[in-house]
Design a binder for these strands. Sequence first.
DNA 1: CGATTCTTTGAAAACAGTCAATCTGTGTGG
DNA 2: CCACACAGATTGACTGTTTTCAAAGAATCG
Lengths: 192, 192
Amino acid sequence: MFEKFEQYLIEKAGLNEQEIAAVRAVSVEKKIRKKHYLLQEGNVCVNNCFVVKGCLRLYFVGEDGTEHILRFAVENWWMSDQESLNNGIPSKNNIDALEDSEVILISQADYVNLQMTIPKVCEMVERIKARSLEASQRRILSNISFSAEEKYKNFIKTYPDIFYRIPLRMIASYLGFSRETLSRIRSQFVQK
Amino acid sequence: MFEKFEQYLIEKAGLNEQEIAAVRAVSVEKKIRKKHYLLQEGNVCVNNCFVVKGCLRLYFVGEDGTEHILRFAVENWWMSDQESLNNGIPSKNNIDALEDSEVILISQADYVNLQMTIPKVCEMVERIKARSLEASQRRILSNISFSAEEKYKNFIKTYPDIFYRIPLRMIASYLGFSRETLSRIRSQFVQK
DNA sequence: CGATTCTTTGAAAACAGTCAATCTGTGTGG
DNA sequence: CCACACAGATTGACTGTTTTCAAAGAATCG
């Protein structure tokens, strides 16, 4: 399972064998079955999680029980609840698996340590964070300025790979409207 | 004008005199009159901008001419278009002043250099970025899960200081609905 | 004071949410 | 292999919310 992560580290950070060994030393492999949790509301998120295989979602459950999906993560994406991880506070969100998945876990302490001891890891993490912030910015723009139909089209264009493997009701949740609305948008679509 | 920034650097990063001198050496003071631009669509954002006094907004102009406000920045906030700044590409957004403002500009090159030469600056920037990402996450959750009224209440609670100095139509734009809707939400409010 | 900008209001139309029923595909156990 | 349950998707009727457009009312500034 680690090989895919190793690939990633070579490609994205340009690590040498020694450095990869250092990462491996603090990596924990884990399998998560579909519908099982990686993180549950109320617990502190202590791990950085790299998705080797499968698909995870980060979501918030409202008072009325409605799920609001904040992020998806598929192969070669990182997933965690940043707020909980950074501040060591209980998470308000859940992470679970939408497919049988394989992940690499690195505790926050080890993760920070890797950044301090391996400059290339530090740079990689910087790039990831920067892109993550840019993506958030784009999503906010989509949220406040697009119509439901535009949001949907934009999602397909932005994440074609994620789109086809996730139930539509979850895409609706991610975009911020009901599954029925999404269904009606799609049916208009077909007629054109 | 630099004194306020100096204060900030002492408080937030714990810099000593020597380090502050290094920051000062690359800082440019600038005044921006109300309604004037700091950045215009199509130009590359090359500066990190610290707001000493006043209020700025970052916004996108849609094809139909509608303004969509991505962020505000008041005293002691940083403002830039991250996507343009990080990647050296033309910005899709505008930054202008909502009040007569005073800012400190530090070019991206100098900014990165300060981070590399002064560890305390690096740490401070890390903290800012982390909090920025968390704030984005919370805003996305608000966007996809709150009603218009809840979004408005939440804005007032989160940014009471910003709220009272910005036209309501801009708050509506920031929250993603029309000024008329905001007006009606407010009038319901008064009756309770 | 007049001009400008901002806010409010009203009425109609467009849009989205809710609830309940139906349809579809998948997989399981008899 | 069939019957059944299950999860997901769709549809219709109804309700509630938001937008749009136009007009009028405040507030602010020179």
